[in-house]
């Protein structure tokens, strides 16, 4: 089962990076979302998969018989997802702001901080 998640994560990373390399800020964001989903899957798979046994104790605090799903990666993922959302939303805000300032979304033409060097400078 982990194998399938591993391949899925690899495929999503590939698609995500391809979008991030496209040079368009909006597509970069699309890629970022795919990438964060892929990374979450990878963390989940690295903690091993246990089918249908959420990490909940029985009333009274007894531990159910048999192996429960690993709680640690779940706790990490829960915050990672929310933080990832924060990152994504902030990036979206930046994108809108950039579009307002530049009038386009092509990253290679955004050179306010590092202007093109004049050629032939000795």
């Amino acid at each position: 089962m982990e194998t399938i998640l591993a391949i899925l994560a690899g495929a999503l990373v590939t698609a995500g990076l391809w979008l991030m390399l496209s040079g368009n800020l909006l597509r970069f964001l699309f890629g970022l979302m795919l990438l964060s989903n892929a990374v979450n899957l990878a963390i989940f798979a690295a903690g091993r998969l246990t089918e249908g046994r959420p990490p909940l104790l029985e009333p009274g605090g007894a531990r159910p018989v048999g192996e429960l799903a690993n709680a640690l990666p779940q706790a990490l993922l829960l915050t990672a997802i929310v933080i990832g959302f924060g990152l994504f939303a902030f990036a979206l805000a930046l994108t809108i702001r950039a579009y307002r300032s530049f009038g386009h979304l092509e990253v290679d033409r955004m050179r306010l901080a590092e202007p093109e060097e004049p050629r032939g400078e000795a």
């Binding site: 959302f85 924060g86 939303a89 902030f90 979206l92 805000a93 809108i96 307002r100």
Partner: peptide
Amino acid sequence: AVIGGVLALIFALEDSGKAG
């Protein structure tokens, strides 16, 4: 904190159309 943070993001994006 989650409500506040997320709604701040949404309101900010929603308002952004007007300013520009």
